[in-house]
C-alpha cells in the first residue's frame, strides 16, 4: 500500500504556509516583522513558498533599534533586493529623538523594550491590521500559551487570560476598528526544527550565526559583543574571542557563545548537544520570572 505521510518538517511547513495564506486572505493590510534573525528569515522563506510564483503580497518591516549588528542590516538589504520584497524601517532612534520614548541609562541599558513604541506607532501610521512575527512557543513559557492568531486591543495589548479559543485550523481574524492581530506562523517550530529546515531548504542566513572572531566581554555570566556605544563596568575586559550567536537581536542584550561551528551541520550538532535554552542567552528575559509576559502584555512580540 502506498503511504501518505509527511515528515514533521514538511508538516510544519504546510501548517505555516496555511497560516500565511489565511493572513493574506483575512486581513487588508498585513505586515511581516523582520528582525534579520533566523526565525524571521524562515518565515520570509515560507511566505515566498506560500504565494509562489507571485511575490510576497505584504511588506516586511524592520524595527531598527540603532544598535544592530552591521551584518544584520547588510543581510537584510541584500535579501529584500533578491526576493523583490517591500521593506519598511521603523526606527527606535526616531522615537527617542521625538521624545516618544526615553532611553534607558546605566550599564545594562537596552533598547530592546523600547521597540514597543515604534512598533505600535508604525502599526498605527501604516494602518497595519496584522503584524506577523517569527516567535515560537518553545522559546519562553509565556509564549507557550500564545495563539497563532493573537488578538490585540486598540492599545496593542495582549490579555492572556481572555484569549479566543483556536479550534482545528479555523482562524478567527475578525476585529473592530483600531484593533489588530499578531500572527505567529511558526508557533509550533522548535529551535532544532528551524535549523534543520534552514539546512533542508538551503536558506541563506547572516554569517553572525557561524563562528568568527569578535571583541567580547563577560557580564553576569554572559558574553556580549563589544560596540563603542556600550558602557563597561570597571571589572569588564574586552577580549578577542571565537564566538557565534544563537539568536540575533539588539546588540546590547544578545549573548554570544564560544563556538567553532562553521557549517549548518556543526550548528545542528551543537544545538542537539546543548543544555541551555536559546533565550538563556538573552539578558532581557532574565529581568524577572515573568519578564516576557509583562512585555508581551504591553505589546512586545
Amino acid at each position: 500500500m502506498e503511504s501518505y505521510k509527511l515528515t514533521h518538517l514538511r508538516e510544519l511547513e504546510a501548517e505555516s504556509m496555511y497560516v500565511l495564506r489565511e493572513v493574506a486572505a483575512q486581513f487588508e493590510n498585513p505586515v511581516l516583522l523582520f528582525s534579520g534573525g533566523k526565525d524571521s528569515i524562515v518565515v520570509t522563506h515560507l511566505a515566498r513558498k506560500a504565494f509562489w510564483p507571485a511575490k510576497i503580497p505584504f511588506p516586511l518591516m524592520h524595527i531598527d533599534t540603532g544598535h544592530n549588528f552591521e551584518e544584520t542590516i547588510q543581510f537584510r538589504d541584500e535579501m529584500v533586493e533578491k526576493i523583490g520584497a517591500r521593506l519598511i524601517v521603523a526606527s527606535v532612534q526616531e522615537s527617542i529623538d521625538s521624545g516618544r520614548v526615553v532611553e534607558e541609562t546605566g550599564v545594562n541599558a537596552s533598547r530592546n523594550a523600547l521597540q514597543i513604541t515604534p512598533l505600535l506607532d508604525a502599526i498605527e501610521k501604516h494602518k497595519f491590521d496584522c503584524a506577523m512575527g517569527g516567535a515560537r512557543r518553545d522559546e519562553e513559557k509565556a509564549r507557550a500559551k500564545e495563539r497563532f492568531f493573537s488578538h490585540r486591543d486598540d492599545f496593542g495589548q495582549w490579555d492572556p487570560k481572555n484569549q479566543r479559543p483556536e479550534l482545528w485550523n479555523i482562524f478567527n481574524g475578525k476585529k473592530n476598528m483600531g484593533e489588530h492581530f499578531r500572527v505567529f506562523p511558526i508557533s509550533n517550530w522548535t529551535e532544532m526544527d528551524v535549523w534543520q529546515y534552514i539546512l533542508l531548504e538551503d536558506i541563506a542566513i547572516p554569517n553572525l550565526y557561524f563562528t568568527h572572531m569578535r571583541k567580547c566581554f563577560e557580564r553576569d555570566g554572559m558574553l556580549l559583543a563589544y560596540a563603542d556605544f556600550m558602557q563597561l563596568k570597571e571589572s569588564e575586559q574586552v577580549k578577542e574571542m571565537q564566538v557565534r550567536f544563537r539568536t540575533i537581536g539588539d546588540l546590547t542584550c544578545t549573548g554570544a557563545t564560544l563556538s567553532s561551528a562553521s557549517t549548518l551541520e556543526d550548528i545542528i550538532d551543537e544545538v542537539a548537544s546543548t543544555r541551555v535554552t536559546e533565550r538563556g542567552g538573552r539578558s532581557d528575559d532574565k529581568r524577572s520570572e515573568a519578564a516576557m509576559e509583562d512585555r508581551k502584555k504591553q505589546g512586545y512580540f
Binding site: L6, L12, I268
Partner: peptide
C-alpha cells in the same frame, strides 16, 4: 536530501 542527523529528516509529527 543532503544531510541526515539522527534521522531527523525522516521523523513524524
Amino acid at each position: 536530501e543532503k544531510y541526515d542527523s539522527a534521522g531527523y529528516l525522516d521523523m513524524e509529527l
